[in-house]
Design a protein around this nucleic acid. Structure first.
Length: 530
RNA sequence: GGGCCUGUAGCUUAGUCAGGUAGAGCGACGGACUCUUAAUCCGUCGGUCGCGGGUUCGAACCCCGUCAGGCCCGCCA
């Protein structure tokens, strides 16, 4: 019981049996894998609660009532007119970043546009939360009481925010953001309120009133959040470290939540995910790996495993190159071990026991479906599959080359498909590419020991013989061991030399399939050095 | 300026809340598997726990200070 999801799950169930784990994201731009941490952390907490014997629902509040802050880099300047307008009221961008009015007419909003692919990715990852569109919650009057309380106790609200965040609010600050006739929030000053309306005046003198019982306008973020907690009876929420800092919005939210008459939910701060070599994920910077793109390269289980195996407080550097290979191989290796059997060992130190239990929890959480057993291994590591996919274009042949007993064929095909996609992408690391030399390895050839020279001659004879008997995998596979035996050189050395001469590296994939895939003349040319 | 998080072997990290001889995986190195070598198994090497003080019989862990990276105190997962 040491995995973070188990710890928090148990703590929650101690308090009460039924839980609502909340998440929330503003759909202001393209979603990225950073947002996946928000969702997966919440989902894993919910599983932790269920494992501890409680019930838990996962909720995803889409902050569609938030305004467009600025014209992001991926948007056309035409969006300038929508700054300050709520995201559910503005058109989605088209391929050029221009407002797509046609799509808007047919019902797709800016928020929907960015949300759709994210929801698709979530589904693939097994995250299926109850969806709440915040603008609808406002329209349905879910926050009427909280708005009223905030307006009536404006000074108290101000005091809480100022004291806890240490920030000074302006004299004309109000705990409500009204919208004008266009749905724009910018530049409006609140002039008063009554039981149902907030009155405002714009910079240009226009005045108006917002009916807050039907969702005209919204609470500012620091009040919006605790109002959600109270309405939905949220018992736990994981949030980014920006909210978790002392005096941050969780702290003020907790106090405002009490003002609304409820206890705040359990909070869990998580760190950001950054892209290796680039900075933090930012929707506006454009240098992101979207959830969909990530899932084209990585099986959902591995993405889940990444989140599950990293404590929330730890920053993650998402690496689509060698780091991905290492992660995926570590995962595959873990699945092959019978961790449950290892636990039976009475001699285990407490630490080792805990480490194994941790691995069990993390691998269970990696499963897209919530279940008590762990996913089965697929039979190949990423590394090995990367090689096989490069030397064989037929999926059927690759399948035959792995120990496929008990492996789900569809699962395997899906993984191979992603592997091929990865190989053809710019993410695939050069050091993983199987490269056959164009020219003989002159340096190495000039530097052979007598034994190595004897081996080389034997190899050439064997390859020439294979020309007669058939240049196929079965015939070729014996060539190196035969030659090694003949000259009494360790097999290891024999392979090493062969690789050096053919590929220029001393460690490589299985040789026979590679040889069979090569032109015989090319092999002999490289071996002879002429 | 105030605050939060992170810093442990070449790499990824566990252990920090409840102080008790630093654990693991990868890589490297060595060996085994006598048709193998990105496969599998076994073994070895590798750590001044960012740094400096303090408390303690004993500190990676607690306290103070300090350095580095990231973040918050408008909005941001």
């Amino acid at each position: 019981m040491v995995h973070w999801s188990d710890v928090i799950g148990a703590r929650l169930v101690e308090q009460r049996p039924d839980h609502l784990v909340n998440t929330g994201i503003t759909p202001s731009g393209e979603f990225h894998i950073g947002h996946l941490r928000e969702m997966l952390t919440g989902e894993m907490i919910a599983r932790g609660v269920r494992k501890a014997g409680g019930t838990a629902e996962l909720c995803f509040i889409i902050d569609s009532a938030d305004p467009l802050r600025k014209v992001y880099s991926f948007l056309d300047e035409a969006y300038a007119e929508y700054i300050g307008v709520q995201l559910f009221r503005i058109p989605p961008p088209d391929a050029d970043g221009k407002p797509d009015l046609a799509a808007f007419e047919s019902g797709t909003t800016y928020a929907d546009h960015f949300l759709a692919p994210f929801l698709e990715a979530l589904d693939m990852l097994g995250v299926r939360p109850r969806l709440v569109y915040n603008h609808q919650a406002y329209a349905e009057g879910r926050y009427v009481e909280h708005v009223r309380t905030a307006l009536q106790q404006r000074d108290r609200v101000r005091q809480i925010i100022e004291e806890i965040s240490g920030r000074e609010l302006t004299a004309d600050w109000w705990p409500y953001s009204p919208v004008d006739e266009r749905g724009c929030m910018d530049g409006l000053k609140v002039t008063g309120f009554d039981d149902t309306h907030v009155h405002w005046q714009a910079e240009d003198g226009r005045t108006g009133s917002c009916d807050y019982t039907v969702g005209e306008g919204k609470l500012p973020w620091r009040l919006d959040w605790p109002a959600k907690w109270v309405w939905l009876d949220v018992t736990c929420e994981a949030f980014g470290k920006d909210h978790g800092t002392t005096g941050g919005s969780y702290d003020t939210g907790a106090e405002l939540c009490r003002l609304f008459g409820a206890e705040p939910p359990e909070g869990l701060t998580y760190e950001w995910i950054s892209l290796r070599g680039q900075g933090a994920m930012s929707s506006s910077a454009g240098t992101t790996v979207g959830p969909i793109e990530a899932l084209r390269l990585v099986p959902p289980e591995i993405l889940r495993y990444l989140i599950a195996s990293t404590k929330p407080a730890k920053a993650i550097e998402f690496d689509t190159g060698m780091g991905l290979v290492n992660l995926a191989d570590a995962y595959e290796r873990l699945l092959r071990h019978d961790l449950e059997a290892k636990l039976e060992d009475e001699e285990l130190s407490r630490r080792k026991r805990v480490a194994i239990e941790d691995d069990i929890s993390a691998t269970r959480l990696s499963s897209v479906e919530e279940r008590n057993d762990r996913p089965g291994a697929v039979g190949v590591t990423f590394r090995h599959l990367a090689m096989l996919a490069q030397i064989r274009s037929s999926d059927e042949q690759v399948w035959d080359m792995i120990p496929n007993e008990g492996v789900d064929r569809r699962e395997f095909d899906a993984r191979l498909n992603r592997m091929r996609h990865w190989i053809s992408s710019h993410h695939f690391p050069d050091e993983m590419r199987v490269g056959i030399r164009d020219k003989p390895n002159a340096e190495r050839l000039a530097d052979l020991t007598p034994e190595e020279e004897a081996l080389r001659m034997a190899l050439i004879r064997n390859f020439e013989a294979s020309l007669e008997t058939g240049w196929n995998e079965a015939n070729l596979s014996a060539n190196v061991p035969d030659a090694a035996r003949e000259v009494e050189l360790p097999l290891r050395e024999a392979y090493r030399l062969t690789y050096e001469l053919l590929l220029g590296v001393d460690v490589a994939p299985k040789l026979a399939p590679l040889l069979a895939a090569m032109e015989p003349e090319r092999v002999l040319h490289l071996m002879r050095g002429e």
